[in-house]
Design a protein around this nucleic acid. Structure first.
Lengths: 205, 205
DNA sequence: GTCTATACACCGATAGAC
DNA sequence: GTCTATCGGTGTATAGAC
């Protein structure tokens, strides 16, 4: 006879309400931008008055904090899932990994803004919400090491390049692909710089 | 007998007041960040009540707009000024130009945020204030063409790389130099990619 | 024309009744 | 746990004094 796990109906209900609130915030952010997320609008969508939200979150930034953690946790899950699909060829492997981040970023502008801070001047993620983003970085570092790239400077450069492409894409050609289509070329360029072996992904001009 | 230029004392006074207001806004932005610029704080620094600012600017965004235009105009002036100082060697020339932008960006975070938008979700520069940034881009494009770089994609990539370095620097190591010290290397990497002749600026590991 | 005074609508956040 | 009422903050608008 196994003991049934004790269900705490009240805690479940509480958690469900938190989910509703965060989902409403995501919805607003996706529809009207991160800045359009107001406590009054979130409350209206879940059928509350805005002060009632403080029963579930201690502040507006606490909602952002949860969203920040979720976004990175979602991407971490993606990274862990495609382990088996990573191509064997080093350059193809690197492109595969970075393309997955670009795709994730382009899919939801508000989410990317939140993940990379920039906006919301006073928001700082908590240690707990920061953890999955650290895990993503650690996993990326490990996989790059597997390709023979060990230097921190190389990692920094690689991340800066991809971030620059995504930022430029959103800033100058939102909805288009003028910058992100250059990702394979950028990967080649970086791979040449750090001495990653294998044929180029694209011909050189 | 030459005709004296007609002085419009009232217009001069008006322009001086606008200067005071914009300078106060720059000061606040530099001291406490772009988000700390409020009409009440600006007004207090120039000895006014906040609604009085509407005599000189039609909105808060109009103040941002002026600042945006000034920032790019300042950098344009710098670009035009160093024409003679640009090294002859192609890679050194490219580094010199991009280093000047990095230095300008790092010098004032709030100014860089304004120049590259990012923050202030609802702010869109006017055509007039946008002009100097277009001029900077045109000048850069012309000078890159002088180095034999003509493709728009090459220009896009170059700008994205430098922007990525600056963004990463501010986001992950504000006040440090972990990313921006990689600029010469990034320039080499880009130069190799686009086939820019000449010896590398840095040895390849 | 320039500035003050007052007010409005919105924001995040708090206090306290139920 | 949710409500109402309210606070201090914001950008913005307008009436009216000088």
């Amino acid at each position: 006879m196994t003991a049934l796990p004790k269900r705490d109906r009240q805690a479940e209900r509480r958690e469900a309400t938190r989910r509703e609130i965060v989902d409403a915030a995501w919805q607003i952010a996706r529809e009207h931008g991160l800045g359009a997320v107001t406590l009054r609008e979130v409350a209206a969508r879940v059928g509350m008055q805005s002060p009632s939200l403080y029963t579930h979150f201690e502040s507006k930034n606490a909602i952002y904090d949860t969203m920040f953690g979720e976004a990175w946790a979602d991407y971490l899950r993606i990274c862990e899932a495609f382990e088996a699909e990573i191509p064997k060829a080093p350059r193809k492997a690197l492109l595969f990994m970075q393309q997955s981040f670009v795709d994730f970023a382009i899919e939801d502008h508000a989410r990317f803004q939140l993940m990379n801070q920039r906006m919301m001047a006073d928001f700082e993620p908590s240690a707990e919400s920061y953890a999955p983003s650290v895990a993503v970085l650690a996993l990326f570092k490990k996989r790059l090491a597997g390709l023979g790239i060990h230097a921190q400077a190389d990692l920094d450069l690689c991340i800066a390049i991809v971030g620059g492409l995504i930022d430029s894409q959103f800033a100058n050609d939102a909805g288009g692909d003028r910058w992100i289509t250059q990702l394979p070329r950028a990967i080649d360029m970086f791979a040449d710089e750090v001495g990653l072996p294998g044929p180029r992904l694209r011909r050189k001009r």
